[in-house]
C-alpha cells in the first residue's frame, strides 16, 4: 500500500467514525427537541452513534466494504 493510499484510508476511517457520531448526536438532539426530553436521547444516541461509527470503521478496516452484515464479501468483489 502506497503512502497516499494509506493516508486516504486513514481519512476515510476518521470520516466514518465522525459521521457515525454526528448522525447519532443529530438524531438525539432532534428527538430531545421534539419530545422535550433533553438530554436523554442525546446521551442514548451519542452512544449508538459511536457504535455505528465504530461498526462502519470495523467494516471498512476488515475489508467488508460497505456491505451489510459482518461477512466478508466474496473475493471477486474485493476490488471495491
Amino acid at each position: 500500500m502506497s503512502r497516499g493510499a494509506g493516508l486516504s484510508l486513514a481519512l476515510r476511517l476518521a470520516m466514518e467514525l465522525v459521521v457515525g457520531f454526528a448522525i447519532g448526536i443529530g438524531i438525539g438532539v432532534g428527538l430531545d427537541y421534539w419530545l422535550n426530553t433533553s438530554p436523554l436521547f442525546l446521551i442514548i444516541f451519542f452512544f449508538l452513534g459511536a457504535g455505528a461509527g465504530m461498526l462502519n470503521v470495523y467494516r471498512v478496516a476488515t475489508g467488508a466494504g460497505q456491505s451489510i452484515g459482518y461477512k466478508k464479501p466474496p473475493p471477486d468483489r474485493n476490488k471495491g
Binding site: 466514518e16 459521521v19 457515525g20 448522525i23 447519532g24 455505528a52 461498526l55 462502519n56
Partner: peptide, 11 residues
C-alpha cells in the same frame, strides 16, 4: 446501531 449505520451511508 445497524439502523444508524445504515443511515450514515448517504452522509
Amino acid at each position: 446501531i445497524e439502523i444508524l449505520s445504515y443511515f450514515t451511508r448517504p452522509v
